[in-house]
C-alpha cells in the first residue's frame, strides 16, 4: 500500500489524463497510432518539452518567464548570422549562450532588486524581440547549408531522432536536478516560502540567478534545435513559446504559486498538448478547434489538480505517499 502511494505521489494526476487522451485518439482518430505519426508527434513535442523544463524551473522558483519566445528568436538570429564565421558548433554555442545570458540577467534583476518576474521578463521580451527584428531587418536570414548544423534537428542517434534524445536527457536531468540535488531543493524552498528560505541562511539570491540561468540554457537548446530545423535565423521563430510552455506546465500540474513541480508534470503536460495538436491536424479540423480545445484543457486541468474540490481525491492520496 505504501509503495502504491509513493507511486501515486510520483505520478502526477495529468498522467492518467494523458493516457486516456492517447487511448481515445488511438481509437477515434485515423492514422494516429501509427509508428510514423507517433514519431512525428514526439519530434515536435520534444522542443516544447525542453523549453517547458526551463519554464518549470522558473515556476518552481515562484516566478514566471515571458521572454522565452523573444530570446529564442534573438538566439536564432545571432546563431545564423555567426554561422559563416564560427562554424556550426560555435554558432549553436552562441545561440544557447544568448538565451542563457538573458535568463541570468532576468534572474539577477528579480533577485537583486526584488522586481516582479512578470515585469522583468516582459521588459526582456521587448528588448530581445526588438533586437532580433532590427538585426535581421525584419526578415529571416537564410543559413548556408551545413550538415553539422542540420544534424541537431534531422540527425539520428541509434535510430532515434536527435531532438527526442535531447528531450529525454533534459527531462531526466531536470528530474534529478529538482528532486535530488541541493540547488533543486533550494529552488523548491525559495518558491514555497522565500522569507523562510532566506532566514534559514540559504543562498537564495544566487539560487534564483542559477535557476533563471538554467532555464535560459534549456530554452537556448530548444531554440538551437528549432533554428536547425528551419535552417534560418527567424526574428519570429516561436512568438508564443512562453505561453505554450506555461500552458504545458499548467496542464501537467505545476502550480504557479511555486514550490512544487517535477519533470513528470512537464512530460505529461507536453504530451497532452502535442496529442491535441496532432489530432486536430489529422482530423483536418480548422486551427480554431485546436485553440479552443487547448483553452478548455488548461482550465479543466488546473481545476482538477488543485487541492479540494473536485480533484482533491487524487492529489490528497498522492501527497500522502510523497511525504511518507
Amino acid at each position: 500500500m505504501r509503495a502504491l502511494r509513493r507511486l501515486a505521489g510520483a505520478v502526477p494526476p495529468s498522467a492518467p489524463v494523458a493516457l486516456a487522451i492517447f487511448l481515445l485518439f488511438a481509437l477515434v482518430v485515423p492514422r494516429f497510432a501509427t509508428a510514423g505519426n507517433l514519431e512525428n508527434v514526439l519530434r515536435i513535442a520534444s522542443i516544447l518539452a525542453i523549453a517547458s523544463c526551463g519554464q518549470a524551473i522558473v515556476l518552481v522558483l515562484g516566478g514566471v518567464e515571458f521572454s522565452f519566445g523573444a530570446s529564442a528568436a534573438l538566439s536564432s538570429v545571432l546563431a545564423v548570422s555567426a554561422l559563416p564565421d564560427v562554424g556550426p558548433v560555435g554558432a549553436l554555442a552562441i545561440g544557447v549562450a544568448t538565451v542563457a545570458v538573458i535568463g541570468t540577467v532576468n534572474g539577477w534583476l528579480v533577485s537583486r532588486f526584488d522586481l516582479p518576474p512578470f515585469l522583468v521578463t516582459l521588459g526582456a521580451l521587448m528588448i530581445a524581440s526588438g533586437l532580433a527584428a532590427s538585426l535581421a531587418g525584419g526578415l529571416p536570414i537564410d543559413a548556408p547549408p551545413s550538415a553539422a548544423f542540420a544534424w541537431l534537428a534531422r540527425g539520428r542517434v541509434a535510430g532515434i531522432p536527435v531532438p527526442i534524445v535531447a528531450a529525454v536527457l533534459v527531462l531526466f536531468g531536470t528530474h534529478v536536478l529538482l528532486r535530488h540535488t541541493r540547488i533543486g531543493r533550494i529552488w523548491c524552498l525559495v518558491g514555497a516560502n522565500p522569507v523562510a528560505a532566506r532566514l534559514s541562511g540559504l543562498p537564495t539570491r544566487s539560487a534564483v540567478v542559477a535557476g533563471y540561468g538554467t532555464a535560459g540554457l534549456l530554452v537556448g537548446l530548444a531554440a538551437a534545435i528549432l533554428t536547425s530545423r528551419v535552417a534560418s535565423g527567424q526574428p519570429g521563430l516561436a512568438p508564443n513559446l512562453a505561453f505554450e510552455t506555461i500552458a504545458a506546465c499548467a496542464i501537467g500540474g505545476i502550480p504557479l504559486a511555486g514550490g512544487q513541480g517535477r519533470a513528470a508534470n512537464v512530460l505529461f503536460g507536453v504530451a497532452v498538448i502535442a496529442m491535441l495538436n496532432n489530432a486536430v491536424v489529422l482530423l483536418n479540423l480548422p486551427v480554431a478547434y485546436q485553440q479552443i480545445a487547448i483553452a478548455v484543457v488548461i482550465l479543466a486541468a488546473v481545476l482538477l489538480q488543485r487541492d479540494g474540490w473536485p480533484g482533491g481525491l487524487w492529489t490528497r492520496f498522492g501527497r500522502k505517499g510523497a511525504r511518507s
Binding site: V64, F243, I246, A247, A250, P255, L256, A257, P286, V287, A288, Y289, Q290, Q291, I292, I294, A295, V296, I298, L299, V302, L303, R306
Partner: peptide, 30 residues
C-alpha cells in the same frame, strides 16, 4: 475563472487568450 473558481490570473487569462483567439478564427472562417 479568477474570482469564483480561484484560478491564478496568468493561467485563467492565458486560457481565455487561446480560447478567444480560437473563437475569433472560428466565426470568421479561419
Amino acid at each position: 475563472l479568477i474570482g469564483t473558481l480561484g484560478i491564478t490570473p496568468v493561467i485563467a487569462t492565458l486560457a481565455t487568450l487561446i480560447g478567444v483567439r480560437g473563437i475569433a478564427l472560428l466565426v470568421t472562417d479561419d
